[in-house]
């Protein structure tokens, strides 16, 4: 019994000792997640709208992008941009490489979320908008997209959480974010369990905070429903 208590005390001592040391890594995780989500949303929106245009070649191009991103591991995409592109003469620093890879990755998934919600909006909405004399783009911007965005929030929330967790893969291209720090700390101390426990808690705090924010957004967007 004493052993259990002693071990627990040791455990929490290590947690308390290392928790502050994670802060720089957590900040990097937050930055990676933030930029890859924001850029991913912009890419996703543009790709989703381009896929709805009447130009076949544009549609095809977007399909190729989505197929490649969804069909290959994120790990490989990170390697490609950071280690692969330099052999073509394109050198990008580690942090922008990570952002580009994560944003392109999220963008592909988010574009499919947006496309689904855009297509779920009743066609009568577009007809009503067009019959007022709106152009296609005006109808999209004023009538379809605001409604589609609202519908995509639950799925987007899902993707955001995945984005937070996926940012840990940036560690393979030398970004010292939360998971890489955890690996370094545990290698230095051989104290594996409390250190990975701490890292896990940080991820949970981030994702739970994100979930909370998203449910607030969802609630706010619901004002016009009965």
């Amino acid at each position: 019994m004493d052993a259990v208590i002693n071990n627990s005390i040791e455990f929490f001592k290590t947690v308390v000792e290392f928790a502050p040391k994670f802060i720089p890594g957590v900040i990097l995780t937050l930055q990676l997640a933030f930029f890859s989500i924001i850029l991913g949303m912009i890419i996703g929106l543009v790709v989703a709208v381009l896929k709805l245009t009447k130009y076949k070649w544009l549609k095809k191009t977007m399909d190729v992008y989505i197929t490649i991103v969804r069909g290959t591991p994120l790990l490989l995409q990170l390697y490609f941009i950071f280690y692969g592109l330099p052999s073509l003469g394109i050198m990008i620093d580690a942090f922008p490489s990570a952002i580009i890879a994560l944003a392109l990755h999220n963008g592909a998934y988010i574009s499919e979320i947006f496309r689904g919600s855009i297509e779920s909006i009743d066609y009568g909405q577009r007809e009503a908008a067009r019959s007022l004399g709106m152009t296609k783009w005006q109808a999209m911007k004023r009538v379809v997209l605001p409604q589609a965005f609202k519908r995509s929030v639950p799925a987007l929330g899902n993707q955001f959480i995945i984005a937070v967790k996926d940012s840990s893969l940036a560690s393979v291209i030398t970004i010292t974010e939360t998971m890489l720090l955890a690996r370094q700390f545990s290698a230095a101390t051989f104290n594996v369990f409390p250190i990975y426990f701490t890292a896990g808690v940080y991820y949970l705090i981030i994702t739970m905070g994100l979930t909370k924010v998203l449910s607030q957004v969802e609630l706010k967007l619901k004002v016009n429903e009965r």
Partner: peptide
């Protein structure tokens, strides 16, 4: 002007 069977008001 056009008035539809299913109204098609903008719900947002």
């Amino acid at each position: 002007g056009m008035v539809f069977q299913r109204f098609n008001l903008f719900p947002h």
